[in-house]
């Protein structure tokens, strides 16, 4: 389950990816391999470059050097919307919703990838019955947890090939975070490949198949959850 079939390229591969903001380079050559059908945890302390890495993968941010390879195809330079329509779904950090649209209109936006609205609604409401009662409400007026559910709904209802989740836990009560990660594990079990970025590492390592540890713009370690867990405290304390 941890590795893809040997005859096929990994679903996602980063080779020596460099990226930055203006003159400041943030990623100094990131190498990463995410096999197919895998729940992959990308961990690291604040400022390690995890979110930038996701942005580069999703096409929101341009890599200045290196290759981003999706299922064997180099996709540097593809735009975010092109990648999204080809099955890559990034749920960004901090509520990936449109606050001034209603819940229903938010779901309508998820149909840009090609799923019919009826499907998206049915799947979302099956998983999050709470959202059904709030269909007509402005998304910005939902509670934090409901907003995160709505954000995740896009990832769950549109059948992506690769789901990228950035800091699901941000600003949410621990019990809710646990619930959401339970859901993530469920979806992964259905065969969707997922990359989860988290600052709070221990929570994710429990559910992940593989993990990588980023420190200061580089991947320091990559392997099974147990291996990474050992390297954690050193990286977080900056040793």
């Amino acid at each position: 389950m941890t590795a893809g079939r040997p005859d096929r390229p990994p679903l996602l591969e980063l080779r020596g990816v460099r990226a930055g903001y203006g003159e400041v380079e943030v990623l100094h050559g990131v190498d990463l391999v995410v096999p197919e059908r895998c729940l992959f945890a990308l961990l690291g302390p604040n400022g390690a470059g995890k979110t930038t890495t996701l942005s580069v993968i999703a096409g929101l941010h341009r890599a200045t050097d290196g290759d981003v390879v999706l299922a064997g195809r180099r996709v540097n330079g593809a735009t975010a919307d092109q990648l999204a329509r080809r099955g890559l779904c990034l749920v960004p950090e901090g509520r990936g919703i449109f606050p001034n649209l209603t819940v229903r209109e938010n779901l309508l936006m998820a149909t840009h990838t090609g799923s019919p609205i009826a499907d998206v609604e049915a799947r979302t409401f099956a998983r999050f019955p709470r959202l059904r009662d709030r269909r007509g409400q402005l998304a910005g007026t939902l509670s934090g947890g409901e907003q995160q559910m709505l954000a995740m709904a896009r990832g769950l209802a549109t059948d992506p090939a690769l789901l990228l989740l950035d800091e699901l836990s941000m600003g949410l009560a621990p019990i809710l975070v646990e619930e959401l990660y339970g859901l993530v594990a469920e979806v992964a079990a259905e065969g969707v490949s997922i990359v989860v970025v988290e600052q709070f590492a221990r929570m994710v390592l429990g559910v992940a198949d593989r993990a990588a540890l980023m420190v200061r713009g580089r991947v320091e370690a990559q392997g099974g959850p147990a291996e990474i867990e050992g390297a954690l405290s050193g990286a977080y304390l900056g040793q």
């Binding site: 919307d81 999204a84 960004p92 990936g96 449109f98 936006m109």
Partner: peptide, 27 residues
Amino acid sequence: LHRTRIGVSMRAIVDDRPLLLLNGART
């Protein structure tokens, strides 16, 4: 603006343009 997908997309752009891109819309 309320009944068509492209119209709702117009309103979504105001809220969060990158997010709309992530949704796969041709902004």
